[in-house]
Amino acid sequence: MNLEELRSVAKENLKGFCRVCSFCDGKACRGEVPGMGGVGTGSSFIANIDALSNIKLNLRTIHNAKDPDICIELFGKKLSMPILAAPITGTSYNMGAKISEEDFIQMVISGSKEAGTIGMCGDGGNPVFYESGLKAIKEENGEGIAIIKPRENSEIIERAKKAEEIGAIAVGVDIDGAGLITMALMGQPVGPKTKQELKEIISKINIPFILKGIMTVDEAQMAVEVGAKAIVVSNHGGRILDYTPGVAEVLPNIAKKVKGKITIFADGGVRSGVDVLKYLALGADAVLVGRPVIIGAFGGGKEGVKFILEKIAKELKQAMILTGCNDIQSVDEKIIYKK
């Protein structure tokens, strides 16, 4: 398998829904929701890309970082890389349905495990979305993370308990999905949560809880206060609210306040290992990858997912050599160029 072949197959399988652009920046597909683009003008999707692009790195080659260790520990489990597959659903209305929901998430969870890391599954208006994710995680002996839409508390707790029962590593809520139109159209409204509602959910769950969709310092601090074990700094891929800043713009201030108190994931616009390194330097503990994983699955199944994740990991390692970082713990703001 090579990247050119994988992209060619993915382009055919995603025809009409994703152009598989040579560089995925959200400009060609702006406003295509459902589909693979960003909501409205597409500015939030594009902001993720631009914010990362604007960060420059200091090249350093007089050091002993010759074979960097890119392993991390997450919720007591050692991973081969600080890169996880983001929760993605909706193959039928976002990706053209050449691959079923069940097959897609199996590819993501299995391919991630084979790469030595973890895949996340998502939730949606169709019960098949979440059920397929749990089935895939169960088949991989619990090596996956289940993310649930911000439904009524009783429904979230019920779904979280199912994830617990199959041995999932963690569970979470993508609270940034509070206004998803697709959920409302399917008669399953979602909405924001109060601190008390979040405390109630977390008090009933016995595995680590993740809050996905944090974009401000105050909400990151609230996540710590309610007992979440991790946050995902994310604007939902630019697919829910137009004109948000890019994740790389807000991450540093969030990290300054909560780094060390809670695990920080960054999600949005990751296309390479260099992007991963930038997010780590800005304060993330690990990153989530979405659209490249879709290309991997639609271009090569679970082997394609593994190929994409390992490609990004290799790029990360090379970038760490060229910035003087021996391990993930040594990556910090010193590698970022500042005028």
Rank of each mutant, 00 (worst) to 15 (best):
I145A: 07
I145F: 09
A146Y: 05
A146M: 08
I147G: 00
I148K: 05
I148A: 00
I148N: 00
I148L: 00
I148E: 00
I148P: 00
I148Y: 01
K149P: 00
K149I: 03
P150F: 12
P150M: 11
R151P: 02
R151Q: 11
E152I: 09
E152K: 14
E152Y: 11
E152D: 09
N153L: 08
N153A: 00
N153C: 11
S154G: 03
E155S: 12
I156R: 11
I157Y: 08
I157R: 12
E158Y: 14
E158P: 01
E158F: 14
R159P: 01
A160C: 15
A160M: 15
A160K: 14
A160Y: 12
K161T: 08
K161V: 13
K161L: 11
K161R: 15
K161I: 14
K162E: 09
K162Y: 05
K162W: 03
A163I: 06
E164M: 08
E165T: 06
E165G: 02
E165P: 01
E165M: 07
I166Y: 02
I166D: 03
I166N: 05
G167H: 03
A168R: 12
A168K: 11
A168W: 04
I169S: 10
I169C: 12
I169G: 13
A170R: 03
A170E: 00
A170C: 01
A170T: 01
V171P: 00
G172I: 11
G172L: 07
V173M: 11
V173P: 01
V173S: 03
D174W: 08
D174P: 01
D174I: 05
I175A: 00
I175Q: 02
D176W: 09
D176C: 11
G177C: 03
A178W: 15
A178E: 14
A178F: 15
A178T: 07
G179P: 10
G179Q: 13
L180D: 11
L180E: 14
L180S: 06
I181H: 05
I181F: 03
I181Q: 09
T182V: 13
T182A: 14
T182S: 13
M183D: 14
A184S: 08
A184K: 14
A184L: 13
L185S: 06
L185V: 02
L185N: 12
L185K: 15
L185W: 06
M186Q: 15
G187P: 10
G187Q: 06
G187N: 05
G187F: 05
Q188M: 10
Q188K: 15
Q188Y: 08
P189M: 04
P189H: 04
P189L: 02
P189A: 04
V190Y: 06
G191H: 03
G191M: 03
G191S: 04
G191N: 04
P192G: 13
P192Y: 10
P192L: 15
K193M: 08
K193W: 09
T194G: 02
T194F: 06
T194P: 07
T194I: 06
T194W: 07
K195F: 00
K195L: 10
E197N: 02
E197G: 04
L198M: 15
L198R: 12
K199H: 10
K199A: 13
E200L: 12
E200Q: 14
E200G: 05
I201T: 07
I201K: 10
I202H: 11
I202L: 07
S203A: 06
S203P: 08
S203L: 02
K204A: 15
I205M: 09
I205A: 11
I205H: 14
I205R: 13
I205Y: 13
I205D: 06
I205C: 13
I207N: 04
I207M: 03
